[in-house]
Amino acid sequence: MASTISVPEPDDFLPARRVWERYGVTQMTLWRWLHDDKMRFPQPVYFGRRRYFRLSDIESWERQRITDSGAGVPQ
């Protein structure tokens, strides 16, 4: 019986490089965000040795950051 390798769909997952490019940060900054409990940055999913981030988790984190900052909320 042949085994199959599951490959993430490009629209559902972002590789780590695309995440740090999205925010204009370095790989080290992304590592710090992942280890900073206050940031609550989404944790990656591993496919083999590669890290991917669920796009839905990233977008949810972005919305939460806006809500937490109070941006767009009338005073």
Rank of each mutant, 00 (worst) to 15 (best):
S3W: 07
S3V: 05
S3G: 11
I5G: 00
I5Q: 14
S6N: 08
V7T: 15
E9S: 15
P10I: 12
D11V: 04
D11H: 09
D12M: 13
D12C: 02
D12I: 12
L14C: 04
P15D: 15
P15A: 07
R17Q: 13
R17D: 13
R18N: 07
V19A: 05
W20F: 15
R22G: 02
G24Y: 03
T26A: 08
T26M: 07
T26G: 13
M28N: 06
M28D: 01
L30W: 08
W31F: 12
R32H: 10
W33Q: 06
L34M: 09
D36M: 09
D36N: 13
K38R: 08
M39E: 15
M39S: 15
R40V: 13
F41R: 03
Q43G: 02
P44V: 09
V45S: 03
V45M: 00
V45E: 11
F47D: 03
F47T: 07
G48H: 06
R50L: 11
R50D: 11
R50T: 07
R50Q: 14
Y52T: 10
F53Y: 14
F53L: 04
S56F: 00
D57F: 06
D57L: 02
I58W: 02
S60T: 14
R63L: 14
R63I: 02
I66T: 12
T67Q: 09
D68S: 11
D68R: 05
G70V: 08
A71F: 01
G72C: 04
V73D: 03
V73P: 04
P74A: 07
P74F: 01
